[in-house]
């Protein structure tokens, strides 16, 4: 009994402390961050008129949803409550029946999610792309030699031991970066490979200070561009694409409480976002401000 008590005490102490550590601001894309924040309660069944959308911070931070959702509500009369978390957390919310529909970007996990019965179906929606940015003078001349070949770019960086800042925070972007390194058969390590463990905005600032190379999502880079002495050196490589999918959650995950999931609304949302209208809106978004779309629609 004593043991259990002291265990509990230690647990309380440590967690009260973790709770006290202020969250640092990590602007921009950080798909896997902040698990468990703002989990809405599903205790009261929602009226047919509203759905809970669980999505990644990148779609929220880029402003895309703020742009799209009012138009969806206008068309269908369905209200959307958005919960922006990391991809992993979003999928977990789906499994726990805490969301009606998901908009996430981890294709393999998504397919698995549908296969195990947590989602009813999955459709491609859009992709955004990553870019390699670096110092304006581009000392490795990557822009000249391989403007759209990320693998040879990274190889050059590693060969020359040029400074490279990695997110190092297990986020979607970080995973993407590691995947590309893996494809080049290089295990990056050494003083030149700076593992930040921070959000995209912080990493861009760090790369700027250290005049290093880094992989970033285009949206975050474009929004911070004016404050950075960094330029795009490699872009538009297949390997740099990031596919988003939409999945209505299978009401069966809640068993006898399946009526608490608004599957109809979820399906309507999916059909709307892959419709011609939804796709065109996605294509429009960001053009005015950045001169190019932040997300490219590619529903079939």
């Amino acid at each position: 009994m004593k043991k259990v008590l002291s265990m509990m005490m230690a647990f309380l102490l440590v967690f009260s402390m973790i709770g006290c550590t202020p969250k640092t601001d990590t602007s921009g894309d950080k798909p896997e961050d902040k698990p468990g924040t703002e989990t809405p309660s599903k205790e009261k069944p929602e009226a047919k008129g509203s759905i809970i959308l669980s999505t990644t911070t990148s779609t929220e931070d880029s402003g895309l949803l703020t742009f799209l959702l009012p138009k969806f509500t206008e068309d269908t009369g369905i209200e959307v409550k958005t919960v922006a978390v990391g991809t992993g957390q979003a999928l977990q919310m789906g499994k726990d029946g805490e969301a009606d529909v998901l908009l996430v970007h981890a294709k393999e996990s998504e397919l698995e999610f549908v296969e195990e019965g947590s989602g009813t179906e999955r459709e491609d929606v859009m992709y955004n792309d990553f870019i390699l940015v670096g110092p304006k003078d581009d000392p490795l001349k990557l822009k000249e030699n391989s403007p759209s070949d990320i693998k040879s770019g990274l190889k050059k960086i590693s060969d020359e031991k040029a400074k490279f800042v990695s997110r190092g925070d297990d986020s979607g972007t970080h995973k993407k970066e590691l995947k590309i390194w893996e494809a080049t058969n290089i295990k990056p390590s050494g003083d030149w490979y700076i593992e930040a463990g921070a959000g995209m905005g912080d990493v861009l600032k760090m790369a700027n200070e250290k005049q290093a190379y880094t992989i970033t999502d285009r949206a975050t880079y474009l929004s911070m561009k004016d404050d950075l002495d960094l330029e795009i050196v490699i872009e538009k490589d297949e390997d740099l694409l990031n596919q988003y999918g939409v999945i209505p959650v299978n009401p069966e995950v809640l068993g006898e409480n399946s009526d608490k999931i608004n599957n109809e609304g979820a399906k309507e949302f999916m059909n709307w976002i892959i419709s011609e209208k939804g796709q065109n809106l996605i294509k429009e978004y960001g053009v005015e401000e950045y001169g190019e779309p932040l997300f490219i629609p590619n529903a079939k």
């Binding site: 973790i18 550590t21 969250k23 961050d33 593992e195 930040a196 463990g197 921070a198 912080d202």
Partner: peptide, 20 residues
């Protein structure tokens, strides 16, 4: 900046690990 092996200390690690 919480850089691994360089500027990563107890509190920044806890904060980061919590996010992850």
């Amino acid at each position: 900046g919480n850089i691994k092996y360089h500027t990563r200390v107890i509190t920044t690690t806890i904060s980061m690990m919590n996010s992850m």
